[in-house]
Amino acid sequence: MAFVWKRLLGTIPSLIGVVVLTFFISHALPGDPAAYFAGPAANAASIENIRATLGLDRPLPVQFLHYVIDLAQGNLGRSLTTGQPVLTDLIERLPASLELSSFALLFAISIAIPMGVWAATRINGSVDHACRAVVTVSAAFPTFFVGLLFVYVFYFLLGWAPQPLGRLNEIAFSPPPHVTGAYTIDALIAGDWPVLRASLAQLILPAISLGLFALAPIARITRAAMLEALGSDFIRTARASGLPARKILMTYAFRNVLLPVSSVLGMVFSFLLGSNVLIEQVFGWQGVGAYAVSAVIASDYAAVQGFVLMMAMLYVLLNLAVDIFATLVDPRVRFEG
C-alpha cells in the first residue's frame, strides 16, 4: 500500500500547479474579464465598478487566496448563459462525456491490443499493414473531420446510423431514470431495452471516431513492445523448452506489453479529453465539451475556466490511476520510485 500513498502524494504538486496555472490564466493575463462582464455598452466607470465587485482590483496574492477558498467550497462562479453555478452545470453534463470517452477507450483498447499483438507475430502481414495505416491516418486526420466523414457515410449515404443529434432521439424515447447519468448504463439498470438500443445507436459513431485516434498509439506501442518481448532470450528459452506457442505468446510475452501500454495511456487520455470537445460538437452530444464550446462562443468566462480546471483535475486523477495500475502490473516500478 505504501507505493499507492506515495503516488497519491506525488499528485499534489501537479494539482497545485494546475490550480496556479488556471488562476494565472483567468486573473493575471492581459485579457480583461471586467470588460467582458460589463458588455460592449460599458464605460470606464462601470468597468471599474464591476472590477471592484469581482475583486479584480485587489493585489494578485489576495485574489489567489480568494480563488483557492472559492475552489475549496466548490464555487466556480456562475455561468452567464445558463444562469446556474458552473459546478452544477458541469456535474450535470459530465456523465455524458465520461460515457462517450469510456466507450471510445474501450473500443480503442479492445481493437488495438489484439491488433498490435497480431501485427508483431506476423510482421508485414495484412494486420501489420492495417496497423500502420491506422497509425498514419490518425496522425494526419483531424478528429472532427473524421467524425463528419462518418456522419456523411454512415448516416447520409448508408443510412445505418441515426441522425447525429445528441444522445437519444427524445421524440421517440424518454431518457431512462437517472442513476449514473450515462444513458446506456441507466437503461441497462432499468431494463429498458429499446432505450438501451437507441442510446447505443447514438453512441456508436462518436465513440468510434474518437476511439480511432486513441487506437493508434496503443496499437503502435503494443506492436513494438511485443516485438521486443518476442525477440528476447526468455522467449527463446521458452520456445526451446517446447512450451506451446499460445502459452508463450499469451502468458510470457504479453505480460511485457502491459507496462508500455499503461505508460502511453497518459497521452491517450490527454488526447481523449481534448478531442471529446470536438467530437461532442460534431455529434451534438450534450456533454461538458459541447457546454464549453457554447461557453466559448458566448464569451462565458467562468464556464470555460471551470471546464478547463475540471478537465485538468480529471486528467491528473486519470494519470494517478494509470500509475497505480502500472505498479500493480509490474513490481519493478515500485522500487524505481
Partner: peptide, 12 residues
C-alpha cells in the same frame, strides 16, 4: 503537461 493540451489551449 498536467493539462489535457487542447483544453489548455482553449482556456488560454
Amino acid at each position: 503537461m498536467a493539462f489535457p493540451l487542447f483544453v489548455l489551449a482553449m482556456g488560454i
